[in-house]
Simulated scan of single mutants.
Amino acid sequence: MNYKYITIEGNIGAGKTTLANKLAEHYNARIILEEFAENPFLPLFYEKPQQYAFPLELFFMAERYKQLKDMLQAQDLFSNLVISDYLFIKSLLFAKINLKEEEYNLYQKLFEIINPQLPQPDLLIFLNAPVTKLQQNIKTRNRSYEQQIADEYLVSVHDMYMQYIRQHPIRTLMIDTTKTDFLKNPADFDSLLNALEKEYEPGIHYL
């Protein structure tokens, strides 16, 4: 496989971290997982979104930047495979949904200062899941602050990701998670491994 930096993305509850861990184990790759549990504003945001959205998104952006910056400075970046379970642009996409216009404009200025300093993935794996499956996964993993996430919010997140992927020439492997189970079905995981052996042009490709 020629890819050196693979990112897995998808909606809340899509299974990003699960797949990232499985791929990293298979390839003996370095893994970068989002440290969402370290964000003290996350439970507060779900209770009072308007009050806590801005510090929530600032904290996430700072933490994601630090993680990815450390990866960029690592000497073995281009010799060993790196797998992450988030895109840095995620910061801006969620900010667009959660912040008021004046807050978003300030946030966007900060984002545009630091984004060019970070590496972009060679390949994006996007896990596309319907809201019913997302809600099922959210309930199964049982994080208390997530249990009241509205369907409408998940739809907004999905639409924002789709808009970004369609408008930017990022090399993307789109996976319908209603037809795959990488954890329980070895054949599904093997099909993904085979797909990762192929070279893709920028744009959306379907597994």
Rank of each mutant, 00 (worst) to 15 (best):
Q73C: 08
S84E: 10
A95Q: 04
I89W: 00
S79D: 14
F94H: 03
L72F: 09
N98G: 14
F94I: 01
I89D: 00
A74G: 06
R64T: 01
K100I: 10
F78D: 12
L93W: 01
I89N: 01
N80V: 11
D76V: 06
F94G: 02
K100Q: 13
L99W: 07
D76Q: 10
D85V: 04
F94A: 04
D70H: 12
K90T: 09
E101G: 07
L87S: 06
L81C: 13
Q67H: 03
A74C: 06
Y65H: 15
L92Y: 01
A62G: 15
M71A: 07
D85P: 06
F60G: 03
E101P: 05
S79F: 05
I83M: 06
N80Q: 13
A62C: 12
L87E: 05
L99D: 10
K66G: 03
K66F: 12
R64N: 09
L93T: 01
K100M: 13
N80K: 11
E63V: 04
K100F: 14
L99I: 06
S79C: 09
S79L: 11
F59D: 13
F88E: 07
D70F: 10
K96M: 04
L92F: 01
A74L: 05
F78S: 14
I83T: 10
L68M: 15
N98W: 10
L77A: 07
A74R: 05
F78E: 14
D85F: 08
M61I: 02
F78W: 14
I97R: 02
F88M: 06
S84N: 11
Q75Y: 10
L87N: 01
L81Y: 12
S91Y: 08
Q73H: 12
L99N: 08
M61R: 12
I89Y: 00
E63P: 03
Q75H: 13
K69D: 03
I89C: 00
Y65E: 12
L81T: 08
D70W: 04
K69N: 01
F88A: 08
L68P: 04
